[in-house]
Design a binder for these strands. Structure first.
Lengths: 189, 189
DNA sequence: TTCATTTGCCTACAAGCTTTAGGCAAATTA
DNA sequence: TAATTTGCCTAAAGCTTGTAGGCAAATGAA
């Protein structure tokens, strides 16, 4: 019996490619086995179950995103940094739709703690240093930025904008302008 | 053989309840059949297939949301209207998480055209009348509001905010303040 | 080299979900 | 009351998840 050389890591990476090709929802243990031309049961030595596989995909995507985000933000500040961070998320979603979808998977507390999630909010918070918000507002602003980035990308990818002019790049640029203006002019009650 | 009185409509309404109880992802033709104490195949006379069932759930949720949104926005303007609309979406998501998730389902063009989707963007646009934006910007603002509402609710429900103070109601209120301020002070390049 | 152990992939099987085909009986209509 | 329609059924095939147990290839020791 020829051995293919399966490892958890190879499975996860192949799963990520599969997700980008056919969608995160379509990533199944079966489909992954087919891709390696191997029987399904063989995968269960490397991955606990289907949920485990999906969680690993989510962690991979969050990690890749965090690396790219850190790189993009480094050496920038203010609107420059804001746009760079937003573009990382948006570009990643366009280039790796399946992985991006994986990153939205709801993680159990343990996985969430081990994820790059904290680094993501940390980077958003770092950007806000350039806007000088008082502390309680900083958290609100972090959440708002997260909401806009995630919401925009989610609607854009889901086709929510696709049936009306003008094109989405224009709106994206204006969204970044608007966020910058909002942060420079942050309302305090 | 006793007849239970299945109809497409009853199935969809029961499916909506099921979605709210166990999650939209867990709504299956099988689970629905169990709920009516009926064999699975019996449902296929009323619903084309699993995808058809989910699409109908999405349309139901979009319709319910549109009705509530129209009611909330009627007679209000400015920040009042903005907050009312946002609260409709957020409250609906909290009260009917499964239906809200259904409303996010990606619809094929035909279903999308038959959905209440257009009414939703129409209501957002109506609110913007109170802020007096020039036309190209209005569309950008509609998309931005959609992004914030959807993104915020999605992150809040997904637990994205749950591991940090302060509580989410506070952030939500400040988010509405921020959007109002942004629209009153809309940046034009 | 040879033998023992570990490891990787296999077969077999159970159970759940989806979907189609065809049938009988209840409800509806004439 | 008879004819027709409609509603729910049984049967069956195909796909996915997951578990248990087995054989052979790789690894490492004598």
């Amino acid at each position: 019996m020829a051995r293919v050389g399966l490892t958890t890591d190879r499975l996860v990476r192949a799963g990520a490619e599969l997700a980008d090709e056919v969608g995160f929802e379509q990533v199944t243990v079966s489909a992954l086995a087919r891709r390696f031309d191997v029987k399904v049961a063989s995968l269960y030595s490397h991955v606990k179950n289907s949920q485990d596989l999906k969680t690993r995909l989510a962690l991979l995507a969050l990690e890749e995103l965090a690396v790219q985000a850190a790189d993009a933000v480094a050496g920038r500040s203010g609107k420059d940094a804001l746009a760079a961070l937003g573009n990382v998320y948006r570009d990643y979603a366009h280039e790796h739709p399946g992985r991006y979808a994986a990153a939205q998977l709801r993680l159990d507390p343990e996985a969430a703690a081990a994820s790059a999630g904290r680094r993501h909010s940390g980077m958003t918070r770092a950007i806000l240093r350039g806007y000088d918000l008082p502390e309680p507002d900083q958290t609100h602003a972090v959440r708002l930025l997260g909401s806009v980035f995630h919401g925009y990308i989610s609607l854009e990818m889901g086709g929510g904008f696709s049936h009306s002019a003008p094109d989405t790049q224009e709106t994206w640029d204006r969204t970044l302008d608007a966020l910058d203006a909002l942060l420079r002019n942050w309302p305090t009650p």
